[in-house]
Design a protein around this nucleic acid. Structure first.
Lengths: 132, 132
DNA sequence: GTAAACTCTGGTCTATAGAACAGAGTCAAG
DNA sequence: CTTGACTCTGTTCTATAGACCAGAGTTTAC
């Protein structure tokens, strides 16, 4: 099953502009244009677009996603090395988000109860040194 | 104690450009320029800059930070609401990252052993439905 | 009292991630 | 076989978060 760009966009839940942008950036391949007619995208491009969107939601930049995508086609050893690198990044990201979560939670729970002066404790907490 | 912009920048660990940018964006107040001479910034601006930087590290955009700062002079409830909103965002982000971590880990451990075809299946693992 | 260092204003420039548009070509349905 | 929908290429525009630069004025240190 093949898609024209509009169908592809609809199937993947992105806009035409996004697809073209990703092509320019090398995140997805631009199928050769038939000498007359429209480009046709293979079904797997839908998956790829979804992958990109998901990874983006997870806080990866397009540049990082591009790297991740390259993992798919390289030698298994390179793949492994890069993937492990990514894993460490993700671990770090999770733990810093977890710390942030705790800090914010503390702030929120202090809020409303510990207003010694007329300022919010959330602001106070953020101005000092707390979560890393 | 008052700071010229350069001292302020050094004290807060930001650049002059950052300070000016924040002024343009209304995140910090631009002191009136004495008819002859340089602007002088009150010491509390250092705190404010640190607050901004800190909040930024915690994933707030300048726009959100501006809101937080604005709300500082308002009701604590509003600040709380914003912080709670952010809290939920962070929770979602953590769980997505955790899912991604699991998927990547599976891939890394399968890599080298389970290459049924000649792909290391990152895309496979993540293009389906896993992390939301 | 001059030179180095700093500040001022205002503009341009960068990267990221697209959105919007113009004018042409192409396809599909009635 | 024409009209409306879609696609093509290329360019410009947006927002975010600053960085950088030039030429002028100001301050500080020697």
């Amino acid at each position: 099953m093949a898609y024209t760009i509009g169908k592809l966009a609809k199937a993947a839940g992105v806009t035409l502009e996004t697809i073209r942008y990703y092509q320019r950036k090398g995140l997805i391949e631009e199928p050769a244009k038939p000498l007359q007619g429209y480009r046709l995208y293979p079904a797997q491009t839908v998956q790829r677009l979804r992958f990109i969107k998901r990874a983006q939601q997870l806080g990866f930049t397009l540049k990082e996603i591009n790297e991740l995508l390259f993992l798919d086609s390289g030698h298994c050893e390179d793949v492994r090395r890069l993937a492990e690198q990514k894993l460490h990044q993700i671990e770090a990201q999770i733990s810093s988000l977890t710390a942030l979560h705790g800090a914010l939670q503390d702030m929120v729970s202090g809020c409303g109860s510990a207003e010694t002066d007329n300022r919010c404790s959330v602001i106070d907490a953020l101005s000092k040194n707390g979560a890393t």
